[in-house]
Design a binder for these strands. Sequence first.
DNA 1: TTGCGTGCAAAGGTTTTGCATGGCA
DNA 2: TGCCATGCAAAACCTTTGCACGCAA
Lengths: 139, 139
Amino acid sequence: MSENIYKTKQRSIILKLLEDNSENSFTIDEIVALLKKNGEPVGRTTVYRYVENLSKSGEVRRFYEGGRSSATYQYVKKENHCAEHMHLKCTECGKLIHLGCDFMNGVCSHIEEHHKFLVNNSKTTILGICEDCLKNGEK
Amino acid sequence: MSENIYKTKQRSIILKLLEDNSENSFTIDEIVALLKKNGEPVGRTTVYRYVENLSKSGEVRRFYEGGRSSATYQYVKKENHCAEHMHLKCTECGKLIHLGCDFMNGVCSHIEEHHKFLVNNSKTTILGICEDCLKNGEK
DNA sequence: TTGCGTGCAAAGGTTTTGCATGGCA
DNA sequence: TGCCATGCAAAACCTTTGCACGCAA
């Protein structure tokens, strides 16, 4: 099960795109198109395989967003300990908000104690609308 | 955009299956196979179209569960006011738990006040493992 | 040099669409 | 009777796999 052993040009290109746009999520198609547009094309198969690797190692999160028909991927920083807190995701702009606050940590304890359910933060995403998009919507 | 105008044999068959098994979620394939097995076969296309309708009108919820490669659908009772509370879904057995408790209602208020984010309960599902599956896992 | 990574082509699987037929109101 | 619903077949997608070649270590 050895993975991500080699450092290649393609991998650094893909990772850079995701890192530089960590506030957004992308479908495989969008990644391929963006890289092509940037003059650094990478094969679709490679994108699938590498992004899937990143997803397994936790550097990237996989979502199924409301409107889109295929999976989307979004970068999360390693040092953020994302397995330990919940996440909010804006369905309008794609922004990912890390909920590392004491109150929300208590929520998991509440669910575990009162509802006998062990929450998996890696798989859970709370969907809704962020502040900025709410303001824009009011116009 | 008129929808679900006619009451047909196929529609009542599909709806009955989902209602009678509201504690479980099914892929399209599973629905088609079950109906066939029950001696009441319905065309795959019809299942896709009707279930998608139900999903839009809120009678059915659509999930992408961890292990499965395609979408799953699960019935939710109309009178449950599911837009007003959060849901837990067990990734092991598929059970859906309705979180209609005061504490959890307060969670949405907390997120709205302190994180400036409006939660959409219709789209949000908290994933994890339920009591029964935890016990089975300990064996 | 060794063995993993890449990417084309093809396969596999899921979902959607076109269209003739069937059935509800 | 007038539409909408159904379901077959085909198309359109999305994702995975096989394999020969390329490249990092």
